[in-house]
Simulated assay, not measured.
Amino acid sequence: MVSLLPRAPYLASIPKSTSSSSSALRPLCMSTTSAAAPTAAAAPAEAAPSRQRKLPVLLFDVMDTVVRDPFYHHIPAFFQMSMKELLESKHPTAWSEFEMGLIDENELAKKFFNDGRSFDLEGLKTCMVRAYEYVDGVEDILCNLKQNNYEVHAFTNYPVWYQLVEEKLKLSKYLSWTFCSCTIGKRKPSPDFYLHAVHHLNIDPASCIFIDDRMANIEAAFSVGMIGLHFTNAEVLKKDLCSLGVEFEHVHQGQMQVQ
């Protein structure tokens, strides 16, 4: 059984009287204003020995955490259906197969609906691109994390259309599209996806903060020893990150380090 107690290097500098507190050490899944705030220290970066790797590393879900998901409102409207009608008529696994890169968009178009009906695929993509926008307040958080030199990665269930999100919103200004289900071939909440991220980053899982709007995905992060934050809105997220010692001091643009 994997321990849920953080063992992260960035917690190593906490005095024993604080680090022994269970409230300070347990993984978080909600606002935690009462928890002791660990101090973020640095650990050696494997890729660049002359520099230090700033911890924690942050993994962000994308849809409905960073970017508004068009699925619940815009896509039913595009098909002129209610959500209930759409869920009843769409193929049960086609989208998840597309998310994992098992089928391409042409195959998706063929099997999106159970009855095989055709639809305007390019029109659907245009509808989705039009709907993509940042969740209120989250871009400011990402910008501040970037300015304070934190390592931030997408950790998302999404098909190759993540490239459409990038073209519209330029998320790569703030994070790396490192962990997308379509390129990794795994989906949340499979623990294998989380373990892949830990191994790829070569990091203790408790040095990762994972942010997602779905509790099932947060619980999967707990199962491999990550710290998890359940996203509800940007204000709560910022408070939760601060409670974990993440720095939000303003950095002038001229002071921002190019990574």
Rank of each mutant, 00 (worst) to 15 (best):
A220N: 05
M63P: 01
L108D: 08
D64C: 13
D120E: 10
K186Y: 12
V67N: 01
K54W: 02
S17C: 07
G101H: 14
R53N: 04
D212Q: 11
K188D: 04
I184A: 11
P49Y: 12
S34T: 06
E105K: 14
P6N: 15
Y150H: 04
S89Y: 02
A45T: 07
D104C: 09
A24M: 15
H199Q: 15
Y194P: 05
E85W: 05
S20D: 12
M128G: 00
L25F: 02
L201K: 13
H91D: 14
Y162E: 02
K111S: 06
P92T: 00
S190K: 06
A109W: 06
L175A: 11
E151M: 09
A154T: 07
A48I: 05
V224N: 06
F60W: 14
S21Y: 04
A154K: 03
T183Y: 09
A131C: 11
S82Y: 04
Q52I: 00
S190F: 04
I209C: 02
V251Q: 07
R214D: 05
V236S: 10
P189W: 07
K239M: 05
F112R: 06
V224M: 07
A8W: 07
V165W: 03
G254P: 00
P15V: 06
V138L: 00
Q257C: 05
K168P: 01
K110E: 07
A45N: 11
H199Y: 10
E46I: 02
V224W: 03
N144Y: 01
V135E: 08
T232K: 15
I103G: 09
L241K: 01
L11G: 00
L121Q: 12
P159V: 00
E151K: 14
D136E: 12
H252Y: 11
S89K: 14
V135R: 09
R130V: 00
